[in-house]
Each structure stands twice: as C-alpha cells, then as structure tokens.
C-alpha cells in the first residue's frame, strides 16, 4: 500500500494498523526519514517537497510491487509527504512485515534505496536567512542501488 500526502503521519499507528489481528507476521521493520537541521554543511530551517502527482504514485506502486516479488512479505507500506515541513517532522515511512526478519530488513532497505533515486520528489531547503535552494542528487544514493542489481 502506498500513500502520498501533505499531512504528518504517525509511525506507531501505521505499524499497529499493519500488524493488528495478524498472527502470521514474525518481523516488522520500519524506516522513518525526518527533516534535520543541516545538509552539506549549511543550516536548514525549513523543507519543501515538490512532487509529480500521478507519476509519484505510479513509481511507488512499481517499487513496492518489485519488493514483493523479490522478498517474501506479509505486508508493505510506503508513505511519502509533500509540501512544507518543519524541523523534526517525518518525511517518509517504509514498513515491511515478514515471517522472518531477513526479508523485512532487506525489503525495507531496497524500498528506500529505490525510492530515493526513482520517485519524483524534489527537496527545496530554506536556511536561517530565508534563502532557499534545491537539493542536489547524492552520488551515495545512486551507488546504493548497485547492491540490488540482479546477479
């Protein structure tokens, strides 16, 4: 399941929703990305995320489908926010559930690595002086994909 929304989400509530009443799930992994106050050596006071409505949902659904094909998952969820975000607020949530921990761990990592380089979102940061600038792509994010290449 995927959700693209402006509103803040609560990680605990989302995990509870996925696992409630289920006895086939033995492992749940979640990753939450937060707005932090620095990037590439500058102070950040606010973050705005632009996205491509329609294509964003399509890409996230495709990434989620791929994860479910590669790992044995009992459940998966991606939530990604757009719009204006304050420091400390959550940006993105990935939850994976499986019978054994390895599938959930690997699938969660895979989902984050893929969405970082494929989902059409763009971050714009504002510093303490109100100056804003677009965030650049990171080489590490592209390299992170290599380990998921099918051998």
């Amino acid at each position: 399941m995927i959700r693209v929304q402006r509103e803040v989400f609560e990680t605990g509530v989302e995990i509870e929703t996925m696992t409630s009443g289920r006895t086939d799930i033995g492992a749940v992994v979640s990753f939450t990305g937060l707005v932090r106050d620095f990037n590439e050596g500058t102070t950040v006071s606010k973050l705005t995320l632009e996205h491509y409505p329609g294509m964003t949902e399509k890409q996230l659904e495709k990434i989620e489908r791929e994860a479910n094909e590669r790992w044995d998952l009992q459940g998966s969820m991606i939530i990604h926010r757009y719009g204006v975000m304050e420091l400390g607020e959550p940006i993105v949530l990935v939850i994976t559930a499986s019978a054994h921990r390895q599938d959930a761990f690997e699938a969660a990592s895979f989902l984050m690595d893929w969405l970082k380089t494929k989902a059409p979102f763009w971050k714009q940061e504002e510093d303490a002086h109100g100056q804003s600038g677009w965030v650049s792509e990171r080489r590490e994010d592209i390299d992170a994909l290599d380990r998921w290449e099918k051998k």
């Binding site: 990604h80 969405l115 380089t117 059409p120 979102f121 763009w122 677009w134 792509e137």
Partner: peptide
C-alpha cells in the same frame, strides 16, 4: 511529457 532534475526525495 515531463522535464525535471534528478530526484531528491526520501
């Protein structure tokens, strides 16, 4: 047709 820079979400 959409034109955009490399994505920076997540």
């Amino acid at each position: 047709v959409a034109f955009f820079p490399p994505v920076t979400g997540g």
